[in-house]
Computed example of a mutant assay.
Amino acid sequence: MSKIAVEKVREFRAEAKFQRTSPQKAKLVLDMIKGLRVEQAINTVHFSTKKMAPVIEKVLRSAIQNANYVSQEQGLDVDVDNLYVRTAIANEGPRMKRIRPAPMGRAFRYQRRLAHIIVTVAEKKSAESVSASAAEAPAAPVAKKAAKKTAAKSAAKKPAAKKAATKKAAK
């Protein structure tokens, strides 16, 4: 048996808590940047017209700086240009209960929602490490493809089921 060295992917995150917006509105912007490279994500958020875009841009830049700082402090080799947005989440924070005046001396309650925004960036695997891992186990994907092809051929050879002819009863 040979031991395979598994390289742990480092994640760097930043949070902005108690933002005065609903999580639903923040998720509209966060969904645009999920999975993008950091540079492209910053450009996307910078030119977005949503109200939460500047806040999310600030959190994204903070996550990048966290990656830079931790890599310098711990002596890690993190390439900031190789980072991508791994997760971008807007969780619900506490709700503020407020009262709106209503006709005839009554009052209606409404809630102001708050959001906790969390952005996590991680380093993409370099091409060298991807090719090395692909060279170690090339047989498994080939076997899966062959199994799929044989299953597709056997399904194609089966004749279509015939429908029974229905006859109308004559009066």
Results as ranks from 00 to 15, higher is better:
Gly105Val: 09
Phe108Ile: 15
Glu92Gln: 13
Arg109Cys: 06
Ile89Ser: 09
Tyr84Glu: 02
Arg113Tyr: 08
Arg86Cys: 01
Ile99Trp: 06
Arg98Met: 12
Ala107Thr: 13
Arg109Glu: 15
Thr87Val: 06
Tyr110Phe: 13
Ala88Pro: 04
Tyr84Ile: 05
Asn82Gly: 01
Gly93Tyr: 01
Val85Phe: 00
Ala90Thr: 00
Met96Ile: 12
Arg98Gly: 06
Pro94Glu: 14
Glu92Pro: 03
Gln111Ser: 14
Arg109Phe: 08
Asn82Lys: 07
Pro101Cys: 10
Pro103Trp: 08
Ile99Tyr: 03
Met96His: 12
Val85Trp: 05
Arg86Glu: 13
Glu92Asp: 11
Phe108Gln: 10
Gln111Arg: 09
Pro101Asn: 08
Met96Glu: 15
Pro101Gln: 11
Arg106Asp: 07
Met96Arg: 15
Val80Gln: 09
Leu83Glu: 02
Arg98Ser: 04
Arg86Leu: 02
Ile99Asp: 11
Pro101His: 13
Asn82Ser: 09
Val80Gly: 03
Ala107Asn: 14
Ile99Glu: 15
Asn91Ile: 06
Ala88Thr: 04
Met104Thr: 14
Val80Tyr: 02
Gly93Ala: 11
Glu92Lys: 08
Thr87Ser: 11
Leu83Gln: 07
Arg98His: 14
Lys97Tyr: 08
Pro103Lys: 06
Leu114Gln: 01
Ala107Phe: 14
Phe108Trp: 10
Ile99Leu: 08
Met104Ala: 11
Ala115Thr: 13
Ala90His: 05
Arg95Val: 14
Glu92Val: 13
Thr87Cys: 08
Gln111Cys: 00
Pro103Ala: 15
Arg106Trp: 09
Arg100Thr: 11
Tyr84Ala: 03
Leu83Tyr: 06
Ala88Lys: 01
Gly93Glu: 01
Tyr84Leu: 00
Ala115Lys: 01
Arg112Phe: 04
Gly93Met: 09
Asp81Cys: 04
Arg100Glu: 07
Gly105Asp: 11
Glu92Asn: 09
Arg95Asn: 13
Asp81His: 01
Arg113Ile: 00
Ile89Ala: 01
Arg95Ser: 15
Asp81Tyr: 00
Pro101Lys: 13
